[in-house]
Simulated assay, not measured.
Amino acid sequence: MAFHEIRFPASLSFGSVGGPERRTEIVALTNGYEERRTPWAHSRRRYDAGLGLRSLDDVAALIAFFEARAGQMHGFRWKDWADYKSCIPSAEVTFQDQEIGIGDGMQREFALCKAYASGVGRYRRPVVKPVEGTVRAGVGHVEKREGVDFEVDTATGIITFAAPPEADAVVTAGFEFDVPVRFDADRIAVSVASFQAGELPQVPVVEVRP
């Protein structure tokens, strides 16, 4: 996949509309019951970048970014202002926000993830685009130091420890993260008159699988 490790201007994504999408196949049975299943293990995010535009300068920045990505050709990072931390939005990131694995004395690499829980339901979302400088990690309730005890690949979301966590030790992490996306159209239609009248262009953006 062609991917540019650059974030869509956060000032433009602020105010956009979007969120997770699921695909559910529903079969209605003759007895009135339903069978439901999903072919997707993970949800997919969709956004409209047009709703964050506030001036013609914003439009110019959007067009420049669109052209530099060659439309749908190259993916990029997107800040989802409603969901960009390992903790709740009002809290500060800590190294104990998310459990990402259990040590076995041999494994050194662990993938970042974020858990979503409600009642008996629980979903673990892979996090593949952490924000540089925001990742904190710990082993057995003791915080480790980035650059000394562990390294982070911000292009894949993999943490590599200098020494493998001991057996049965809980490995945790906290972080900010972006969503890997691409434009979902190969054209942007903007009318200056319409924009000044309050009509915003539709600029669909869709999450890409890592």
Score class of each variant (00 low, 15 high):
2 A>N: 08
4 H>L: 15
4 H>M: 14
7 R>E: 11
7 R>F: 03
10 A>V: 13
11 S>C: 01
12 L>P: 02
16 S>D: 05
17 V>K: 06
19 G>R: 10
20 P>C: 01
20 P>D: 01
22 R>Q: 12
22 R>Y: 15
22 R>S: 13
23 R>T: 14
26 I>Y: 08
27 V>M: 07
34 E>H: 12
36 R>Q: 13
43 S>I: 11
44 R>Q: 15
47 Y>L: 01
47 Y>D: 00
49 A>T: 13
49 A>D: 04
52 G>K: 03
54 R>K: 10
54 R>W: 00
54 R>F: 01
55 S>R: 08
55 S>T: 15
57 D>W: 06
57 D>E: 14
58 D>S: 06
60 A>R: 14
62 L>P: 09
63 I>G: 01
64 A>N: 10
65 F>I: 11
68 A>V: 03
69 R>A: 15
69 R>P: 00
70 A>T: 01
70 A>G: 00
73 M>Q: 12
74 H>E: 08
76 F>T: 03
76 F>D: 05
81 W>N: 11
84 Y>L: 01
86 S>Q: 03
89 P>A: 00
90 S>T: 13
91 A>Q: 13
97 D>C: 07
98 Q>W: 04
99 E>N: 04
103 G>I: 02
108 R>C: 00
108 R>S: 08
109 E>C: 07
110 F>Q: 01
110 F>N: 03
113 C>T: 09
117 A>N: 12
118 S>C: 09
118 S>L: 06
119 G>N: 06
120 V>S: 12
120 V>T: 08
121 G>L: 06
125 R>L: 10
128 V>M: 08
128 V>N: 10
130 P>L: 04
133 G>T: 07
134 T>E: 02
135 V>G: 09
138 G>R: 02
139 V>T: 09
140 G>Q: 05
142 V>C: 05
148 V>R: 05
152 V>E: 07
152 V>T: 09
152 V>A: 07
153 D>S: 14
153 D>N: 15
154 T>E: 15
155 A>G: 05
155 A>D: 07
157 G>Q: 10
161 F>E: 00
163 A>Q: 08
163 A>T: 13
164 P>Q: 12
166 E>Y: 09
167 A>F: 14
170 V>Y: 07
173 A>I: 09
173 A>S: 04
174 G>C: 08
175 F>H: 07
180 P>V: 06
181 V>F: 00
183 F>G: 00
186 D>F: 15
188 I>N: 03
188 I>H: 09
189 A>K: 07
189 A>C: 01
189 A>D: 09
190 V>I: 15
193 A>M: 11
193 A>Q: 13
194 S>Q: 12
198 G>D: 10
200 L>R: 12
200 L>A: 10
201 P>Q: 11
201 P>E: 07
208 V>D: 06
209 R>E: 15
